[in-house]
Design a protein around this nucleic acid. Structure first.
Lengths: 226, 226
DNA sequence: CGGATCGTTGAAGAGTATCAATTTGAGTGG
DNA sequence: CCACTCAAATTGATACTCTTCAACGATCCG
């Protein structure tokens, strides 16, 4: 799905990771957000005819493609889903604001820690993380393009997080060894994610609602694209 | 209006400039967006009980305070306004994505030029800029906190834009001497603002609609706060 | 006129980028 | 199971953008 495309259907992440990103003309890339299971790639289909960013998967992913017309009908029938969608867009905006704060004012170390915290908490909210461990299929180059750093510097920053005994990475998963210290270092305040106290949010509801009422899924296994 | 406040009414900018910002615990500040006439400070009142940022005016400003209940009624009666609100939130998100790209991947010079272009085009869209001139009541410290730079560096960056004959500043207004070169330098693509070809957008409609149906305005002159 | 805020300048240093090479690790096919 | 390949991670050296600090000048306003 690319910058400038028209929107004829909405894509829901069922499994795997993806990201939104933009390219500058000379090739510089900036990732503007991650999509985890339960997220919609493009909740803008109702207002904007074109999207102004691209989406790429970071690993093989499972998605549901919901035709625009079908989604409109679903939203009419199940207003809770409409509300969840609206909520979700606002949460996305809050996350985006925090990214601006991170890239603008946090140091490389704080910024990297903050992104790890964000992803862990979002995955936890949809039941995909526990015991301080979660999938982490994001390359150092992707992190660099998310954090406004170079890949080399991300590498050294991750080394520092490891040497401080805050995280370990194995295969494509990550463990927070001392979540509290990590959040302190990151200046991380969970509240901006607007989740309930128990760590759940309405996306979870959206996912489970979806399971009962969803249109047929199209299955797509996709290699990482750029 | 501060981080954590409950939302009992929505504030509409009628005149003047304001910004959204967040503080880190140690005092570092990051501005996450500007509010110009026609913008709502907090279009989140419908879903989120708390806001996760603060708002400050940058100059004496005129605002309309719309009680939550009244706005709900207005939106029921005039669905076009509801649509404009929804649209507006999506445009805000697009702007935020572009800020992430700017701070993450544009150089200081490009980034500064890009913010100038954004503000000019947004002001033009609500009829507050023409002939490449607009109000610009933003201090270098504010620019620094918007662009993720130090005030000193913003100063030198503005000097460079002036020495390249791209802008001039007088009093509190700014003139783009060579808008095309400025946009090229900034890698600025107008499309992300999702405005119509003529430079107008639905916020303008929102403003004029409001004039006919608005609740009584409360007038508030406010000194810059932090 | 005095005080505050904002803008400007210079010098020195920190943080991060860049470049280039090397190592590691995960497939893949023989 | 091993050799091969390719992408990702790591390392070192060097350069540069931007920050910090401190001082000074300009402007505004009561």
């Amino acid at each position: 799905m690319f910058d400038g495309d028209s929107l004829e259907s909405v894509i829901l992440m069922l499994d795997g990771f993806a990201c939104r990103y933009k390219h500058l003309d000379d090739g510089r890339r900036q990732i503007t957000g991650y999509l985890v299971p339960g997220d919609l790639c493009d909740p803008y289909v109702f207002m904007l005819r074109k999207i102004d960013y691209s989406v790429a998967t970071l690993c093989p992913a499972l998605i549901a493609k919901v035709p625009r017309s079908k989604l409109v009908k679903i939203l009419d029938e199940y207003p809770r889903i409409a509300r969840a969608l609206w909520w979700s867009a606002l949460v996305d905006e809050g996350i985006l604001r925090e990214w601006v704060v991170s890239i603008g004012r946090r140091t490389a170390l704080e910024r990297t820690a903050h992104l790890i915290c964000e992803l862990y908490h979002r995955l936890q909210a949809v039941g995909l993380a526990r015991n301080n461990r979660c999938e982490f299929p994001i390359t150092q180059q992707d992190l660099a393009d998310s954090l406004g750093l170079s890949a080399v510097h991300v590498n050294r920053t991750l080394q520092e997080l490891r040497s401080k005994k805050l995280i370990v990475q194995r295969n494509h998963s990550l463990v927070m060894l001392d979540p509290e210290k990590l959040r302190d270092l990151a200046l991380f305040k969970q509240s901006y994610l607007h989740m309930a106290e128990d760590g759940n949010n309405s996306r979870h509801e959206f996912m489970t609602s979806r399971a009962k009422h969803a249109p047929p899924l199209s299955r797509m296994i996709d290699q990482k694209g750029g």
